[in-house]
Design a protein around this nucleic acid. Structure first.
Length: 372
DNA sequence: TATCCGTGGGA
DNA sequence: TTCCCAAGGAT
């Protein structure tokens, strides 16, 4: 018994399997190079190359590899250094090292023939649960499930499984579901056609983007199809936590006016008026000196602003600019009356700061202006 | 359990 | 440009 919750009683596991088998035989792929053989060595090689790698990329590598290493024995007897050139460009080079080790392991502990038991296959280097299932099903007709990216897509959509499939709890649920589906299937099934059919569906009608449900034999009872969730399932990988940035803003005051700069059109807050912004307090201080401000700015209470792609910690610094002019030469640097803040095009956090300056009673007391 | 491992493709 | 993902596994 599996322990995953069963929120989808409408689906019929037995019909799921038989429908996929029929569809695969009529509409599935039948001419991929590794489908022409029952040789476990070639099937294994293809499954390793296909890990996280698209079919179109693998095909040439697969042929080249087999010309040089036509049998498991040939591979096992070679040096690893002779193998690596045939993997160069494919990526994930641990696959090639494990491939070589695996060939030697099969030679040494299984008499040169891949075992049929998926658990024994999965104990070999570079072979996990899903690859072991595929080898057992394709090479030996063993009735055992796989759970690769294609199958995850078909299962999450058809059965309505939510949560990122890379999450271990979700993946465990999917494996349990895959076992239960096979357990409920007819006593005799073409396991190779079923396994291939799942992958053909996942790379065809049930593609990642814009699935062609009208071409899918399962659409009439598909959870995602029924609820219009094709583009929400599988649940996408949660986005990495947004980075935290920080900046310092200068509140330059003179005679109830505040000094603002218009931001460039490109970039964040494009075209809006904002307080002069600096990466660090030193840059802010030297800017004040350049403008002839002789007193030190006072640090005010900070605030955080959340964007879609980062968080921004803002530290305001306030200083009076006695004797400063309210006329600026550059049009994108101007003094504005504090009371004017509701009419200005200001970023939200800046508006909050300026509003607080215009209504000092609403915020904690700002630092006393310079005594000199 | 989360992270790393490579390259190519698509939006 | 940038991000996500592709017939996953090892650590």
């Amino acid at each position: 018994m599996s322990s995953y919750p069963r929120p989808y009683p409408a689906q019929n596991p037995s019909a799921f399997v038989t429908t996929i088998i029929q569809w695969q035989k009529q509409h599935g792929r039948h001419h991929l190079p590794w489908q022409k053989t029952g040789d476990a060595y070639r099937i294994w090689l293809s499954e390793i190359m296909l890990q996280q790698t698209q079919v179109s990329t693998v095909i040439d590598y697969y042929h080249r590899f087999l010309v040089r290493f036509p049998t498991l024995q040939a591979l096992a007897q070679a040096d690893q250094a002779d193998v690596m050139p045939y993997w160069a460009g494919l990526g994930y080079y641990a696959r090639a090292r494990n491939l070589h080790k695996c060939a030697q392991a099969v030679q040494a502990t299984h008499g040169g023939r891949f075992p049929e038991d998926p658990e024994l296959i999965a104990a070999l280097p570079g072979i996990g649960r899903s690859t072991a299932g595929a080898i057992a099903a394709f090479a030996y007709g063993v009735r055992t499930p796989i759970m690769d990216g294609n199958v995850k897509r078909v299962f999450t959509r058809y059965f309505g499984v939510t949560g990122y499939p890379g999450n271990s709890v979700v993946e465990k649920t999917l494996w349990a579901l895959a076992h239960d589906v096979l357990d409920a299937a007819p006593a005799t099934v073409d396991i190779a056609a079923y396994t291939q059919g799942l992958m053909d569906l996942g790379s065809g009608p049930c593609a990642r983007r814009n699935p062609a449900c009208e071409q899918c034999p399962l659409s009439h009872s598909c959870h995602a199809r029924k609820h219009g969730l094709q583009n929400q399932l599988p649940t996408p990988k949660p986005r990495a936590e947004v980075p935290l940035r920080s900046c310092h803003m200068l509140i330059l005051l003179h005679d109830d006016h505040v000094f603002l700069e218009q931001r460039p059109d490109s970039g964040i807050w494009g075209g809006l008026w904002s307080l002069p912004e600096f990466d660090d307090p030193e840059a802010l201080a030297s800017y004040c000196v350049q403008r002839g401000v002789t007193t030190a700015p006072q640090r005010m209470g900070g605030l955080q602003h959340v964007f879609t792609h980062f968080k921004l910690d803002i530290t305001p610094w306030q200083v009076n600019a006695p004797g400063a002019t309210t006329r600026e030469a550059e049009p994108q640097k101007q003094w504005f009356a504090l009371q004017q803040w509701p009419t200005l095009a200001l970023p939200a956090p800046v508006k909050k700061i300026i509003a607080g300056l215009a209504q000092p009673s609403l915020i904690s007391a700002p630092a006393e202006p310079d005594a000199g």
